[in-house]
Amino acid sequence: MSGILLLGTITCIIGYLFLKGLDTIKLSLIFGETAPLEALLFKKQVFDGLFPAMIGTFSLVVLSVGWAIPVGLATGIYLAEYARHSVKKVFNLFFDILAGIPSIVIGLFGFSLAVFLHKHFSERIYPCLLISSLSLAFLVLPYLIRTTQVALESLPAATRLTALALGATRLQNIFYVLIPKSLSGIISGVILAIGRCAEDTAVIMLTGVVATAGVPKSILSHYEALPFYIYYISSQYSNTQELLSGYGACIILLTICVFLFFLAFVIKRRLTYQALYRV
């Protein structure tokens, strides 16, 4: 009964979106009046399409994952391989709290960081792509740490000790044995983090996203993003055409997220097999 209810609800939601939005999915939704090739090469500005928003989301994701991956992976490795038990306990508590903080509070933090930097360091810093990507990095950091740590810790003791017994150092053991072995877990964590960056609206809403900005020119400029576009359309659309493009944006965002989800899923399976049979 409740299973049917849940399945019914989710079918309703997705079905409604596709029913309303399917007609709008065509090239002009993305590129507007501009020719696709010229837009892709940044020769011409796109005015009435979703292209700037997609580029904004894309650069946002790349930047924030770029910040978060080195720190997250290193922290995960430290927790799994180096930290003593008591240290690990304290750190785990902190990361659990960080994972639980609502995204809007992280956005608020990013905003106040921007104000702080603006006052004390440089007049040129105000909420922008850089600040947003940093805040998003804070948001996904705990997920990355946790998946790396779990992936490393779940390796069997035999794998963990063989290289050490053969005379490898700790670092060699980590880079040549443990990380390749746990790569599938780590990568699916990264993909989930990307999905989280792409969908989050609350953080970017507070840290520099705007409704119309065109393609972002530098990391200190405003930008557009798909989720914010959807929110903006839903609250202040002026005509049916804008509303329809909102449906289109929903479908694009949904497709991206579902695609990333399945990618994580497939990689998790594939890589486990490969890592097992190749070596």
């Binding site: 939601i13 979106l17 609206t201 989720p227 929110y231 965002l253 949904l254 989800f261």
Partner: peptide, 12 residues
């Protein structure tokens, strides 16, 4: 369902 963006739930 855990992967569906919140903003889409809101929109619908």
């Amino acid at each position: 369902m855990t992967g569906i963006p919140t903003v889409i739930y809101g929109f619908v």
